[in-house]
Design a protein around this nucleic acid. Structure first.
Ligand SMILES: NC(=O)c1ccc[n+]([C@@H]2O[C@H](COP(=O)([O-])OP(=O)(O)OC[C@H]3O[C@@H](n4cnc5c(N)ncnc54)[C@H](O)[C@@H]3O)[C@@H](O)[C@H]2O)c1
Ligand SMILES: NC(=O)c1ccc[n+]([C@@H]2O[C@H](COP(=O)([O-])OP(=O)(O)OC[C@H]3O[C@@H](n4cnc5c(N)ncnc54)[C@H](O)[C@@H]3O)[C@@H](O)[C@H]2O)c1
Lengths: 256, 256
DNA sequence: CGCGATTTGTGCACGTCTTCACAAGCGCCT
DNA sequence: AGGCGCTTGTGAAGACGTGCACAAATCGCG
């Protein structure tokens, strides 16, 4: 049970491997590998090569192998990776062996969609509670859960072990909600409101902002348009974009 | 005293302002700066220092200055940046001087929320059309737009200049929809379905996957939990995370 | 049992991103 | 006019991430 982890010395004690400290870029890709692996498992694959998994996940195979090697050696040379084993490993590393409880705050337009989303349940999470500040919304039942008032957060948090808070309120309320989540011990927040949150050390915030994604796409549109106005410098100018175009979570022109 | 520009007025015809090819990491942050600048403009600020803008955008000031310097020299030493001018500059670079038309495909749970989202309009975009494959959904009116059948996509695309396609269908349909979008000339896609899309060169795809975000948070939860089980190595172990913890679009522990 | 085909794991080189630290530039005040 | 304080813009260094290319390991087969 008690496991020691020292920087550099990844001594593995018995069955449970020590949590290695993975590069953040790797962590961001593991969920994608996991999804691809589940697909493969469903279609009857027992093993998969790095090449096969890489293409299913939309990355390059060298990168995939390097990522997986960070978790330990779970492949077999000449054969590939055992799909079931790898799923277990990645789920373990991502902390998905326990189904984490999620609290969703802000049951408006977006919040309703999220509350009804089955992707929570199928991918390792459980919506434990819904909150809103609007009295007209409190009491409403959404896919089996009753919306509670945000003031009940402390009480509910004491009952359920809330691991992650999701903020789907207007931006103006987001900081206040974040503070309230932090106050009841939540140390991971997913923020859909378009604003920056201030949180204490040790609390992780990830942000999803639709408009930012669109604006990044807009930039590339603008750029592509300005390129086509240039005198032809050779063949297809569109593919002459700089190599680094692919952002951390952008896929660009992965061939068929 | 170099170039100033007006949307549609000066220097657009012959003298192309030479779109610099920005580092992708910079492009991903510009929208955040833009949002912060709009907030500042609304609260009456005419100029802002790199320090002030950086904290409003949740980044470090050196990074912000380097990012902005990529666009040209639009700051004044000893003073800061002119808020209005910088807004114009960033909007120009991001290609927001023209309001781009967005087609939303898949008007289900999530699609409804997106269709009613005012963040499109307020941040440079216009929902031009809604599509679905379900005959029961076709004809429904959502915030002023009528849902059309996906088979009408070619006709609508000919009328409106669709710049960006947003996919909010189940994963099983996403590739097919992407192909149809590409076929009518769309070169930028925002994909909410949890799957990898194959597109030809020159087409940009960005993905938003809620479950991936949650799983990344889960990893850090798992990690924090395993750290607290360690014998105290002196002081607050939670802040002893490696410096690179902050992912491209993660904010971690930005002090109050 | 040994050999060839296959595929992993990784050393290495290269490119990108971040951060520091400071010179250069600007406005204000005297 | 000149000096002073403030802030930008950037060179350089280091951290980080990526992709190539190949040795090492394993399997299947004769
Ligand atoms: N609708 C979308 O598709 C979409 C897409 C991307 C981002 N967003 C962002 O998500 C957020 C929510 O969007 P929406 O369209 O659902 O807005 P909405 O106005 O429909 O819903 C917001 C909900 O939050 C509740 N709320 C307000 N203050 C609260 C508080 N202090 N505590 C608890 N609940 C509170 C309101 O009562 C309301 O029910 C916004 O910040 C929006 O910018 C929305
Ligand atoms: N609901 C959420 O909060 C949420 C969050 C994150 C991601 N997602 C993802 O977004 C997607 C949509 O989720 P949802 O909850 O809205 O699902 P949904 O089933 O409610 O809606 C999907 C819609 O797409 C339509 N559709 C199916 N095939 C189509 C086709 N070929 N062309 C056009 N339209 C088609 C369906 O008729 C339906 O209206 C899914 O991939 C889901 O995983 C949803």
């Amino acid at each position: 049970m008690s496991q020691h982890r020292h920087p550099g010395a990844s001594g593995r004690a018995g069955v449970v491997p020590a949590l290695p400290d993975l590069p953040e870029a790797t962590v961001a890709r593991l969920p994608e590998y996991l999804r691809a692996l589940h697909n493969l498992a469903e279609t009857g694959h027992e093993t998969i090569s790095s090449e096969g998994l890489a293409s299913a996940a939309g990355v390059n195979s060298a990168k995939l192998r390097k990522d997986l090697s960070q978790l330990g050696s779970y492949g077999t040379r000449g054969v590939g990776y055992d799909v079931a084993l790898l799923i277990d490993q990645i789920e373990y590393v991502l902390g998905l062996t326990q189904r984490r409880a999620v609290a969703l705050v802000g049951v408006g337009n977006l919040g309703h969609a999220l509350a009804g989303y089955d992707g929570f349940a199928t991918r390792g999470f459980r919506i434990a509670a819904l909150f809103d500040a609007d009295p007209k919304r409190v009491g409403e039942e959404i896919s089996g859960l009753v919306v509670r008032h945000i003031d009940d957060l402390p009480r509910v948090a004491a009952e359920e072990a809330i691991a992650i808070g999701v903020i789907a309120t207007p931006a103006a309320a987001a900081q206040r909600v974040a503070d309230e989540l932090v106050a009841v011990g939540v140390t991971s927040i997913l923020n859909f409101a378009p604003c920056v949150l201030s949180v204490p050390d040790g609390v992780d915030v990830r942000k999803v902002d639709l408009a930012i994604e669109l604006q990044i796409l807009s930039f590339h549109e603008h750029r592509k348009a300005s390129l086509t106005r240039l005198p032809a410098t050779g063949g297809s100018t569109l593919t002459a974009l700089p190599g680094g175009l692919a952002a951390p979570d952008t896929q660009e022109a992965i061939g068929t």
